[in-house]
Amino acid sequence: MREIKAKDITETVARLSKEANYYLGEDVISALKKAREQEESPAGRQILDQILENAKIAAKEQMPLCQDCGLAVVFVEMGQDAHIAGGELIQAINEGVRKGYAEGYLRKSVVKQPFSSRTNTKDNTPAIIHTEIVPGDKLKITVAPKGGGSENMSRFTVLKPAQGRQGVVDFVVNAVDEAGSNPCPPTIIGVGIGGTAEKAVILAKKALLREVGKPSPDPEVAELEKELLQRINSTGVGPGGVGGRITSLAVHVEAFPAHIASLPVAVNIQCHSARHKEAVL
């Protein structure tokens, strides 16, 4: 059995928290550049220029891309033949978030009691941690800070099976259309279809981790992604919501088998500051 030290997990999460907040992924940058070439709206182009310039400044000065450094969403894939030594996994991750957000001058945006006092926990913990047990003896950690502006535009519904594919398309397009300028377009749209309520929502969030614009390996799903993107980019919302052709850079759909009675659909909107960094221990 391979041993992974808890303190290495903490150090890794701290580093990934900072890197995710300072450095926009190359895939996001090239998608933004392509959008800049395609956008017809002058106001929209100006916003894309600002977003690209912002990414340069953030990287150069090691400043957060966005003042909303997000809730720290952490995906963990733990090999079943690995063993964590010298501490507990969840504690090690939260300690990493605490360290990374303090050292990195990242904003702490977590409040403790959400429905009443809403007091800031002051260290951006607890992280939102999703763990999965996988084959092997490695530990893969993905830190994906998620801002409130885009997360607040998430939608979930359970359609009737009779509503089928068209029902899914209408629900997703409507969610993005209604969100308008709120989630900081151009966005990336994560869609989870099938499973149970919680499964669909997790799939939608996980879909955001895919390389921007990389189609689903399932041709039918890839076709759906294509149609959704085309429909979304016909809404006219545009960069910053000021009107334009590029409302979203990509739509990523993850599908999963569902109950004979259900067609769950979840939408998770990611702002253009699509931050995630990963490491394997």
Binding site: Q50, E53, E61, P64, C66, H272
Partner: peptide, 13 residues
């Protein structure tokens, strides 16, 4: 008025 959401390092300048 709107400033560009997410252009936070640029705006700080």
């Amino acid at each position: 008025l709107a400033a560009t959401g997410g252009a936070a390092a640029l705006i700080a300048k």
